[in-house]
Design a protein around this nucleic acid. Structure first.
Lengths: 345, 345
DNA sequence: TTGAAAGCGCTAACAG
DNA sequence: CTGTTAGCGCTTTCAA
């Protein structure tokens, strides 16, 4: 991938020559800077369009011009939660003429730090972090330092979810969503509920569990006895978690998975065991990924507007930075479908 | 997103100074170029790592160094088919220390062309096109010209699927997969089969339909009477298509959706109409997206190794370019699950 | 309002 | 084996 032998691409020089002006004037015309007569500016733009000229962003960036590129950090793009967020980001990116670099962290803080450094080295104008934050602030301390420096030097940052990063954030109301769905199960009469969750070190998980606790408290029930089984935040993790729940808590009538991916695994494992949903066991998810409504039984879950969250995050990052971090809360809406019902008599 | 005010980031200069060498030596050490003693090179690398130095890719690229960045063109990243491919690409990208820019085309040739131009202007080292090609070569003629120029100037290109672009390609065996799944339905005894498909202008669709035709021919059946209903290659499109099939071809016993997304929509619409699958109507998909096995009924489909296709495409692009375009065929494997059975008696 | 010229940080000749 | 130096294409003072 050497570019040494790159053929002569169209340069600003060529446009300037074709328009009969200096490259300084051409530059000003194309970037819309003041100090050029309207007629000349227009002519230059026409010529550039005619020639199919596109500025070399490396040269532009190196010369201190504005960067039209943003970085998006996700845990795993194959996960529908993140791919839907990414879709939102790419959507406004395209509208705004921005280039979007996406990178994986695999939920590893070190990888995340490395990716952040790369993005910063690539001089992206903004960074969107879509993965959940970590409960322990110290694990992201290095990332925080890096991002602060990035912001001081004019970079924009926005995160999706609760982080200890001190930057603009789009916050899904995880606690309220979890409260609502837990209450839904309690209202149906479930008392032997188990929770299947991803890593407890994620703020997303902490917030959702807090919501579940709130619902129990509101119902005057003790949350302490509720089994909370930790596994991967994936379909496979859901299978693992539900096996454990079934084995160790045989009387369970409802499994709350803390994301849809796990819930799908739970449904699948239950079907494999011949346990009917919601007849014998109710199952709930969280996120409302696109496929949730098309499962059978369709999944009772909490809807998070992932695409919109991605859009909002980028829009937030694009805004003039404020004095203090801004927060945009997006609602989490209970969606009752067929996977939840009253417990067996 | 101006970077004019960027604070002084670590430069190669700084590393060189800290290591007590010239920037030339530092450059060679970091890029692994020959002509530096192993000891010095190692010391420079240690110093750089210590300082947390990351090269400014814009400067590097502008100076004619190798570009560590690739562009990935997809129709829609929110579609699991593409997000799984993207996951494969990001995976090897991370391993190889490459930056990946992703962009949407929304299946619009003009948007695709524009994105291609941007990628090229951004001086990516390689471009991976993951969306299906078009049956009509003229629609991609402009893209072809652009890509040829890109390649002549040292850029690498690989596509996934059949395109008329004359470049390296990863080719899923769509025809064989479709033949196999059609034969599966015919073997089960289905004779009133309908096809629900995305745009007929896609080569992917053309190839899959050809495969279906082959199966009919092999069975000595006429394919001409089979209803082929065209709609969006999405869940919603599947719903639309199956409504039409049900209304206009009431005797249909099997619906072959030409991708899983449509199949999910078909299943959903059938469930809404109270039609049992596979009791009354069998349904098949194509791709085997992650969720296909977790649907109820689980989906009979054709497995395409999307992640691997993404990996292969990038690996292909990274290789020294050959004299002629290379092709890597990946198998399409029939996966029989619960959504297909013998037609009702 | 326009043009000339000085870099941005790096790579790759070319010298030593 | 190491250092010096000339650009890469663009933006942006500074002069005209």
């Amino acid at each position: 991938m050497s570019s040494r032998e790159r053929a002569a691409t169209l340069r600003l020089q060529d446009v300037a020559a074709a328009a009969g002006v200096s490259i300084a004037t051409a530059s000003r015309s194309l970037s819309g800077s003041p100090g050029v007569s309207a007629t000349v500016a227009q002519r230059v733009r026409d010529v550039a369009a005619d020639l199919g000229y596109v500025a070399n962003m490396h040269a532009r960036s190196l010369a201190g011009g504005p960067t039209r590129s943003v970085g998006l950090v996700v845990h795993e793009i194959g996960d529908p939660y993140f791919s839907e967020i990414a879709s939102g980001v790419l959507g406004v990116g395209a509208r705004e003429g921005l280039t979007v670099q996406i990178c994986h962290t695999g939920r590893d803080p070190e990888r995340e730090l490395a990716q952040l450094r790369t993005l910063i080295a690539n001089r992206v104008g903004a960074i969107i972090i879509a993965g959940s934050g970590l409960v322990d602030p110290s694990l992201q301390a290095a990332a925080k330092v890096e991002l602060q420096a990035f912001r001081r030097s004019g970079g924009r940052v926005a995160v999706i979810g609760r982080h200890h990063l001190g930057v603009d954030a789009v916050l899904p109301d995880n606690t309220e969503g979890a409260r609502a769905i837990a209450q839904h199960l309690l209202d149906l009469g479930h008392r032997r509920i188990a929770v299947a969750t991803g890593s407890l070190s994620l703020t997303t998980v902490a917030d959702r569990i807090a919501g579940v606790g709130e619902a129990f408290a509101a119902a005057g029930l003790a949350f302490g006895d509720v089994p909370v089984v930790e596994a991967d935040f994936t379909r496979a993790g859901g299978k693992v978690a539900v096996e454990e729940i079934l084995d160790e808590h045989p009387g369970t009538t409802a499994v709350m998975a803390l994301n849809d991916d796990m819930a799908i695994g739970v449904l699948s494992a239950l079907r494999a065991r011949g346990i009917s949903v919601p007849g014998q066991v109710s199952v709930t998810g969280f996120d409302d990924v696109a496929v949730a409504g098309d499962l059978a039984p369709s999944l009772t879950t909490v809807r998070l507007p992932m695409g919109e969250m991605g859009e909002q995050a980028l829009l937030l990052a694009l805004k003039e930075p404020g004095a203090r971090p801004r927060r945009r809360t997006v609602g989490a809406e209970l969606v009752v479908r067929d996977s939840s019902a009253a417990p067996p008599a």
